[in-house]
């Protein structure tokens, strides 16, 4: 990259260029936008970044993103403590929460088993999940990992591990996305959708 900017600006461009999906040109555009911004706005952005980095931590119980020892879901007493939904990443919690259908608690694994990349159970929060089941009053574990090979393998592994502990282990159903075309549905998804068909309520 040409070093024709002053070092201060150049350094900022390089910092932005490190962010995912941002190339040198986009970084340059963002930096010039920021330079034109009123000082207060720029300071607010800087403060937001610093605050987030300093205050955000992982929930002690479920490893969701939190701004204290426990995340908002674990702090909420109205949530059902007997049902735990196991997800791969904290952002999956947001997706499940948006449905408004789930009122239990969560457990974030921080990834999925990936034998080809050498990611084994010891790299995930599996031991912590087993400990939780031993100590909390958990009756049902919903395996909410992604419906791809890694997620399925993770779910199968957890099911084998957790069933002997005497909890009900369930897996998220697979089916057709609402708004999709049957013609483009793959055989595995359509097959599972058929398997899990239900009586039409009239």
């Amino acid at each position: 990259m040409s070093a024709s900017y002053t070092p201060v600006v150049q350094a900022l461009i390089e910092e932005f260029g490190r962010l995912p999906g941002i190339g040198p040109k986009s970084a340059q555009r963002i930096v010039f936008y920021l330079l034109k911004l009123p000082v207060d706005d720029a300071k607010r952005l800087a403060k937001a970044i610093v605050d987030a980095k300093e205050r955000v931590q992982f929930c002690d119980r479920c490893f969701n993103i939190a701004d204290g020892p426990l995340c908002p879901v674990c702090r909420d007493d109205r949530r059902d403590p007997t049902v735990v939904c196991v997800v791969e990443e904290p952002r999956d919690i947001v997706s499940v929460e948006r449905t408004g259908e789930f009122h239990g608690r969560y457990h974030v694994l921080m990834g999925a088993l990936n034998p080809l990349d050498g990611i084994g159970p010891e790299h995930l929060k599996v031991r912590e999940l087993v400990t939780r089941i031993g100590s909390d009053d958990i009756e049902e574990v919903i395996l909410c990992t992604n419906p791809n090979t890694e997620g399925e393998v993770t779910a199968l592994y957890l099911a084998r591990l957790l069933k002997p502990l005497g909890v009900r282990v369930t897996r998220l159903a697979s089916g057709l996305p609402v708004g999709g075309d049957l013609e483009y549905a793959d055989e595995l998804t359509l097959g599972r959708a058929l398997e899990g068909r239900r009586v039409v309520e009239t």
């Binding site: 080809l116 090979t149 399925e152 393998v153 099911a159 055989e187 595995l188 097959g191």
Partner: peptide, 26 residues
């Protein structure tokens, strides 16, 4: 699809053994 993936993801033994063959072939 030529063959359904469903049986491969039906048990941990199948999935893990299938993945082991893939790794060696890769």
């Amino acid at each position: 699809s030529v063959e359904s993936l469903a049986p491969m993801l039906a048990s941990l033994d199948r999935a893990s053994r299938g993945i082991a063959t893939l790794e060696a072939v890769d």
